[in-house]
C-alpha cells in the first residue's frame, strides 16, 4: 500500500517536463508503482494536449514538408533493424535471494544490475552506490540498508527525495514501504531504520549544497556531519 505520493508541484512539473532530471527519475520510478499518480499525470498531460491544440499556429516555411519527406525517404533506405536492448525487469538479489523490481529509469541508470554498481560500505548497516544522472543540482544514489539496520541520525542541508524500491523503513515521522515517495526538506533530520525481514533498497536524490564538493563526499555528507557532531559533543 503506497501512502506517500509526489505533491501537485512534482506531478505538474513532471507532466510539463520541467523537473530537474534527477527528480524526474524519482517521480518516474514512483509512477511505476502507483496507478493513482500515473492517472494524474495522464490528466495533466491532457491539459497540455488541450492547450496545445488551441495555440495560435505559426506558419512553417514552404519547403518544410518536402525537406521532411526527403529525410523520410533517405531514412527508409538506410534503416537498420531496430535493436531493443532487453534488460530484465527484475533481478535476483544475491544476498537475499529475492527479486527486486526496478522501474525503467532506474534499470537504465544501474545498467540492468544492482550488483555491478560501485558500492561503498558505510558501517555494517548501510552501503551506498552513486548514480550518474546529468543533473547539476542534484546527486542521485541507491541506498541499501541491511534488514533491521539503522542509519545514523542525520540532517539534510537540501531537499532529499527517497523512493523505496524494496523493503520498508521507518523513522520518527512514519513508516514507509515499496513505492513510497518520501520528501525531507532542508533542516529536517531523521534516523531511518529498515524493518527486520528484508534489506531496504532506495533510490535517493539529494539537493546539492551551495558549495560544491566531491560527489561521494556530498552523498555521505549528512552522515559524516553526524559523526563530527558526535565527536565534538564527546570532546566538549
Amino acid at each position: 500500500m503506497i501512502s506517500y505520493h509526489p505533491d501537485s508541484r512534482y506531478l505538474t512539473d513532471f507532466a510539463t517536463a520541467n523537473l530537474p532530471l534527477a527528480e524526474a527519475v524519482c517521480v518516474s520510478a514512483h509512477l511505476e508503482f502507483c496507478g493513482k499518480c500515473r492517472a494524474h499525470v495522464q490528466q495533466l498531460t491532457d491539459v497540455g494536449g488541450h492547450m496545445f491544440a488551441r495555440l495560435q499556429p505559426e506558419a512553417v516555411s514552404e519547403d518544410s514538408f518536402a525537406a521532411l519527406m526527403a529525410r523520410v525517404s533517405a531514412g527508409a533506405q538506410e534503416q537498420a533493424p531496430v535493436v531493443t536492448v532487453q534488460t530484465p525487469r527484475e533481478e535476483l538479489d544475491e544476498t537475499t535471494q529475492s527479486h527486486v523490481f526496478l522501474p525503467r529509469a532506474v534499470r537504465r541508470l544501474v545498467s540492468g544490475s544492482l550488483d555491478k554498481l560501485r558500492w561503498v560500505q558505510l558501517g555494517k548497516a548501510l552501503r551506498v552506490a552513486p548514480l550518474q544522472v546529468s543533473d547539476e543540482s542534484r546527486d542521485t544514489a541507491i541506498y541499501d540498508i541491511r534488514a533491521g539496520g539503522r542509519m545514523p541520525e542525520h540532517e539534510h542541508r537540501g531537499e532529499e527525495i527517497t523512493v523505496l524500491l524494496q523493503g520498508s523503513f521507518s523513522d520518527a515521522d512514519g513508516s514507509y514501504s515499496r513505492g513510497d515517495f518520501v520528501v525531507r526538506h532542508a533542516g529536517e533530520s531523521h534516523q531511518p531504520t529498515a524493518t527486520m525481514d528484508k534489506d531496504c533498497i532506495c533510490l535517493v536524490c539529494l539537493e546539492r549544497p551551495v558549495r560544491p564538493r566531491g560527489l561521494l563526499y556530498r552523498l555521505l555528507e549528512p552522515l559524516v556531519n553526524y559523526r563530527l557532531q558526535r565527536l565534538n559533543r564527546s570532546v566538549a
Partner: peptide, 22 residues
C-alpha cells in the same frame, strides 16, 4: 554525456500496476 534517455523517464509505463480509475 547522456547516461539516460528522455524516453526512459517520460514513458508510457508498462507497469503491472494498473492505472487507477479516477
Amino acid at each position: 554525456d547522456r547516461t539516460i534517455d528522455i524516453e526512459d523517464i517520460w514513458h508510457e509505463a508498462d507497469s503491472p500496476e494498473p492505472v487507477v480509475e479516477l
